[in-house]
Simulated scan of single mutants.
Amino acid sequence: MVSADAAKGTLLGLACGDALGRPVEFRSPEQITEQHGTLTDMVGHGTHGKPAGTVTDDTDLALCIARSLAEQAAFDGEDIADRFAEWYDDGPFDVGLMTADAISEYKTGTSWRDAGREVWQRRAEGSNAGNGSIMRCAPHAIAFADESDTLERVSKQSSAITHHDPRCQYGCVLLNHTIAGYLNGTDDPVTDAIARIDGAAPDELVETIRLVPDVVDENQLENTGYVVHTLQTSLYEALTADNAAEAITASVNRGGDTDTLGAVTGAIAGARFGADALPDQWLDTLEYRDDLELLAQALAMTEMGSNA
């Protein structure tokens, strides 16, 4: 039985990390230190010029997935793609390049199963394996926490709507199985998740994550938008911290792709420590707090099918 507190922690942690990181996105660690010392409070303005607590595409797209799962009581790839397209048509202030291209491809009539692949095949190495699907995939972990095979399948299919690269697809599998392990109270969910993808996923992804948390040098962790870097850094912070706020704060203060580092770290740490561990001052400021709590509860309680 999935813990309701851990389920809420997953979505709220994702959004808290996103909102904490949003004002300092693209800043270096030195620039963050110069302006904020250690950034621990949700602040306004900064990158994108939004009020404190405002989330970005990380949370927006996770909400698209969560609402689809809750309303359809199933994974429905076309419904998720439709929601992505509707969101995109509203003119979000932040959207990744590959996500934008894939949604645009879908809007031309390409199937949701093929749009991400079409875009991926046109992209050169170095611009084809971003973190835009791992940042949003956590709702699947709640909905299918007790169905490992289904969770693997829908994680890959959902990623491929915009991010077809195997590193992205299996990155979502690894992340979602880690979160599901915490939701179910397993002892070592990361090791279990690695075992799940070992032999099928790209070696670079598996071997990079296998270093976490004890082998990797924390001073060499990267803050880029590359899916492998984001997963390694976020897992390290979530696994080595003593509480959720510490994990999210450490991740965001690394600079770079701060909103997504914060979101991915927050989803893992929220599942590990639960919603009650998130600071009240963050939650009181957070955009969509009520929606996130209600959706997490719905996903944890709804028996899911699949329309894939």
Rank of each mutant, 00 (worst) to 15 (best):
M1P: 15
K8M: 15
K8Q: 15
G9Q: 01
G9R: 03
T10I: 11
L11A: 09
L12R: 04
G13D: 06
G13M: 02
A15F: 08
D18W: 10
L20T: 03
G21D: 10
R22A: 14
R22Y: 05
V24Q: 03
F26D: 01
F26I: 04
S28N: 08
E30K: 15
E30Q: 15
E30V: 12
Q31S: 14
T38Q: 14
T38C: 15
T38M: 14
L39R: 09
H45T: 15
H45V: 09
H48E: 06
G53M: 07
D60H: 14
D60C: 08
L61C: 11
A62R: 01
C64T: 06
S68Y: 05
A70R: 12
E71T: 09
F75K: 02
G77C: 11
E78L: 09
A81K: 04
D82W: 09
F84V: 03
A85R: 02
D89K: 12
G96F: 01
L97F: 11
L97H: 13
L97N: 14
M98L: 12
D101N: 14
Y106T: 01
G109N: 04
R113S: 11
R117L: 14
W120R: 05
Q121P: 07
A124V: 06
A124P: 05
G126R: 10
N128Y: 10
A129D: 07
A129M: 07
G132K: 04
A138R: 07
A138G: 14
H140Y: 05
A141G: 08
F144W: 10
F144R: 02
D146L: 13
D149V: 12
V154K: 02
Q157W: 00
S159F: 05
H164M: 04
D165Y: 01
C168Q: 05
C172G: 11
L174G: 07
L175H: 06
A180K: 01
P189Y: 00
P189L: 00
R196E: 08
I197S: 00
D198F: 10
G199C: 04
D203P: 01
D203V: 07
E207Y: 09
R210N: 13
R210M: 08
L211D: 10
V212G: 06
T224F: 06
Y226T: 04
H229G: 08
H229E: 13
T230Q: 11
L231M: 08
Q232S: 12
L235A: 00
E237W: 05
A245W: 05
I248K: 00
N253E: 11
T258L: 00
D259K: 02
D259V: 00
A263W: 01
T265F: 04
T265E: 03
A267Q: 07
G270I: 00
R272Q: 05
F273D: 01
A275E: 09
P279K: 07
P279L: 07
D280R: 12
L286V: 12
D291A: 10
D291E: 11
T302I: 11
T302L: 10
E303G: 12
E303H: 11
S306A: 13
A308Y: 10
